[in-house]
Write a protein that binds this DNA or RNA. Structure first.
Lengths: 259, 259
DNA sequence: CGAGAAATTGAGGCCAATCAAGAAGTGTGG
DNA sequence: CCACACTTCTTGATTGGCCTCAATTTCTCG
């Protein structure tokens, strides 16, 4: 768990794509000025997501719904630097439940704070929009997979996606081992499979010498080779920033607002 | 096919959510000032989507990829008022193919034009962002479905989604019959099923008295009841606009730009 | 009217779900 | 440090639904 109070997971992530100006950085840091801490495997009884959003500073969080047939479906897993609630931004109310998968630190901020960004920084707005479009492309990749592909392929793709998302924050160029604080049951509910199938798939991937998984630690033995085999598209490294507006901040009232 | 040159499908759609000012309307109309027409069932050899986006003014379009195993996967179907290419906005290049499902009219505009919107109208930017987030929520609904649900349920949900999307443009309060210019093969490729399964599912839905499908015309006999049965979430009617910035247009250079 | 595309219907095989039981891992209090 | 309860993971046998292959009928449009 991150201990540095001044650390901003959003700034780290956004800085990956564009060089943030001081003003832009302030706008982002403004969203992470408060902190909440929670233990692992607890349900978050957050206020309605129509009022607040939550930046994940550290730890893993997931959102799910209970279906009428008794099954549970995990809709999305949130990693550090991602914003819980953004997906429901357009909705007036959300009926998803939220749980922590590990010890977490999150920063709540009111939806209204997004207005600051949209009103004052066209460039940040554009990046925020582009990141969301990228996440949409990833969702489409998942839909591309899910259509009756063999379970082993689905799981392998899922692991590759986690790998790609985590690598943004890793400074290790040979990044192939990471912790996944998820039970196989949660993974199953994410992918629309059963824990039995997930278990079998992992054994097979292991005996095929592709991915080993034990005690919540995953190792992809040859990430590049596996990506090629599965035609996996690593979306996270490529955002087209060529058409972005300049970084000038609109309106002179800005400085006073964030002060 | 829409014949009125001044008709803007974007304005119609956006006006559903907020009352557009004159300036905002001009910004949107600016995206639809050119027109291209294509016949049904043709492949669109458009310029790379990294440069241009396309507003669908009339007709249906779909994008797909050919998978290595010989299967085809339809990634998304575009209806009037939707923008082809927005999903790849963040990508530097896109390798999806595009086909028309019916006779279509589309309006190309350069990606740079989006910058105008982001730079000059925070309120439109926010709406554009919210609509994209709504589409993301819909994608998640599809993922929620696709996890090993019975084929009949998947198909029924798909039909309900089309119904909800089309209703935005229909002024019929008792909207239950509409044309779907898609073959069962295309539907199958959209949902990750086979044409055989789609056919069987439609027969069953028909004999259950829920949905009838013949000659590309769908009738949902009791939309509200079916929505309830399937716990279908109609996302399209509810966008939370409460936190939107005011409609003022930034920068005095705006009027000259769109003149 | 005729040819090609699309939809229907049927038989057989395969993969993941389900059900079930046992093993391994995790956390707690004595 | 161990004992105990609980969760998670593994392994096996059976079942069911969708895919595949294939033949026929219906639709569409020049």
């Amino acid at each position: 768990v991150q201990e540095d109070k001044n650390f901003s997971s959003l700034v780290e992530r956004f800085n990956y794509y564009i060089d943030l100006t001081q003003d832009e950085e302030s706008l982002l840091r403004n969203l992470e000025k408060n902190e909440l801490r929670f233990k692992s495997r607890v349900k978050l009884h957050l206020q309605n997501f129509s009022d607040n959003l939550y930046v994940v500073k550290a730890g893993w969080i997931y959102r799910y719904v209970d279906l009428h047939n008794g099954q549970r479906k995990v809709l999305r897993i949130y990693l550090p630097g991602e914003i819980v609630g953004m997906d429901d931004l357009a909705l007036k109310a959300s009926f998803n439940d939220t749980m922590t998968a590990s010890d977490v630190v999150i920063s709540p901020f009111p939806k209204k704070s997004l207005e600051d960004i949209f009103s004052h920084s066209p460039r940040l707005s554009t990046l925020l929009f582009s990141i969301s479009m990228m996440e949409k492309a990833i969702l489409m990749d998942r839909i591309k997979m899910s259509g009756r592909s063999p379970a082993v392929t689905i799981i392998a793709n899922f692991i590759l996606e986690l790998h790609a998302r985590l690598r943004l924050h890793s400074h290790d160029s040979d990044f192939k081992t990471f912790e996944v604080p998820l039970t196989q049951g949660i993974i199953a509910d994410t992918l629309g499979l059963t824990n039995v199938t997930v278990s079998n798939a992992f054994s097979q991937l292991d005996s095929d010498g592709k991915i080993s998984y034990s005690r919540n630690t995953v190792t992809i033995h040859n990430p590049e080779k596996l990506k090629q085999e599965l035609a996996f598209n690593d979306r996270h490294f490529q955002i087209d920033t060529s058409w972005f507006p300049p970084s000038k901040i609109n309106s002179s009232s800005f400085q006073t607002q964030i002060a």
